[in-house]
Amino acid sequence: MSSLYFGDVFKNADVLLRGLGITFLISVGSLVLGLIIALPVAFMRNSRSGLLRFPSSLYVEFFRNTPLLAQLFFFFYGLPELGINTNAIVVAIIAIGLNTGAYNSEVIRAGLLSVDKGLIDASYALGMSPLQSTVYVVLPNAFRVAFKPLSSTFINMVLGTSTAASVTANELMNSAVVLAGNVFRPFEIYSTIFVGYCLLTFTLSFIAKFADYHLISKHGKMKNALKSSVGVSG
């Protein structure tokens, strides 16, 4: 049984930091993709037209009821079969983005439904068209309710990027595994990234709470609080 030695970790910190950078890259890419998809899907799910509800519900149910790992494999092995050859990071962004998009659309949908009907009445009574009402009244107020759960799913998604290691994306977890193979200091390496992930989460949580206070809560609490339904994406 060996004694602990962290020196090897520090000497190879650049490997881990590069991995962390890839984690950031995948996280941001997935976040953007996820939000771009989530907003229209949320509206489609709430729509009166079955033609819009069906495909959007199918999408959400598929990505919420299957494991992220399976989704990653689906794209990692499936895309080349379709002739799309691209690197693991892009695959990860696509899979994780679609996954988080499904969870986010539910959160946004609940936020949209939580907007008091009276506000919509008032906006119409003031002469706004449905589009204007949605943009100036419904969306901002839905966002106020959805922000906290959305930041929660985002943080879970960041943790879920570690699953992308299984499709060879060289983010933080994968970098650690490779490093452990070269340096044979698994405990030091894994405990370092363990702490690293925790710090990352705490930082993101802090930023989210700060943003929530200054953009939203400061101006007074709203009556309808969305009960947090956190979706873990991995």
Partner: peptide, 17 residues
């Protein structure tokens, strides 16, 4: 709606503004 202005029982002010 420009001709008729309306005031509601529940006020319905926009909380985000």
């Amino acid at each position: 709606r420009k001709t008729c202005g309306m005031v509601f029982q529940q006020f319905n002010l926009f909380p985000n503004l």
